[in-house]
């Protein structure tokens, strides 16, 4: 039996909102030691999502037997919207489940809402991602990155990122003209989360589809900072750290023809 209780429903609500536009059907793997993990690839096989929710992400977590919960994220989103952000959220499944029970409890009032969601058999292949060495790593406020990705998409369907020792340059060029945003490394002593950190082994020049970047920045509601790891010509890693876990996106770059 699986029983995972979150201190507030908002984490799960934000997670599903962050990924449901990229992938529709997902297998949630549950185990006592690893908590809940998920790997899913979008239909175009350009963007991969990897989620880890350690048992420590939960207020209470037990999983007697390893389980795979095949869920339609559109349906899960509908159910999660029934609960308030501050509600306790508990996910419950039997050992050979046909359904996932989603329970919301209002912390102040005596109200309990219960939903049963049908599970599905989802055939999906899993890609093995080894730890990669990257040429550079950038950590910046996730809202700053979200703004650049959203703004620059209005100019072009591609976003070029150039990283040098102390700055990151985002460039877009499209039918109406061109644009660039340069951000420089700096340390904010008052609020460390506002700092911009660049670790560089080698300068990088990569281009990504603006559509995918706009899907990725939907996760900026989950973490105040995002870490972007880039290497020329190989997939980039975008990581949003969670309390006791992470949401990672791997994105294949675009190539010059």
């Amino acid at each position: 039996m699986l029983e995972g209780k979150f201190e507030s429903a908002s984490l799960m609500k934000r997670l599903v909102e962050a990924i449901k536009d990229s992938v529709k059907l997902c297998n949630f793997n549950c185990s006592q030691t690893k908590g809940i993990t998920l790997q899913a690839i979008d239909d175009s096989r350009v963007l991969l999502i990897s989620l880890k929710l350690d048992p420590g992400c939960f207020e209470g977590f037990r999983c007697d037997k390893n389980l795979v919960l095949g869920l339609d994220l559109e349906s899960l989103s509908k159910v999660l919207k029934q609960g308030n952000n501050e509600d306790y959220l508990t996910l419950i499944a039997e050992d050979a489940p046909d359904n996932l029970l989603v329970v919301f409890e209002d912390p102040k009032k005596d109200r309990i809402s219960e939903f049963s969601l049908k599970l599905m058999d989802i055939d999906s292949d899993v890609l093995s991602i080894e730890d990669m060495d990257h040429d550079c790593s950038i950590t910046l406020p996730s809202s700053d990155f979200a703004k650049v990705a959203r703004d620059m998409r209005t100019l072009s369907e591609s976003l070029q990122i150039l990283v040098t020792k102390d700055s990151v340059k985002f460039m877009a060029s499209g039918p109406i003209g061109t644009g660039s945003v340069i951000i420089k490394a700096h340390t904010d002593l008052k609020d460390g989360k506002e700092s911009i950190k660049i670790d560089l082994n080698k300068s990088v020049n990569v281009t990504f589809g603006a559509k995918y970047l706009n899907d990725i920045v939907k996760a900026s509601t989950l973490a105040e900072t995002v870490t972007i790891k880039l290497t020329n010509k190989i997939p980039a890693l975008f990581e949003f750290k969670l309390q006791g876990g992470y949401l990672r996106y791997y994105l294949a770059p675009k190539f010059d023809e």
Binding site: S128, P235, A252
Partner: peptide
């Protein structure tokens, strides 16, 4: 804007 690469070229199915 270039050709979009796919992840399959980089990661193997396990």
């Amino acid at each position: 804007g270039g050709t979009q690469g796919r992840l399959d070229g980089f990661f193997k199915v396990s």
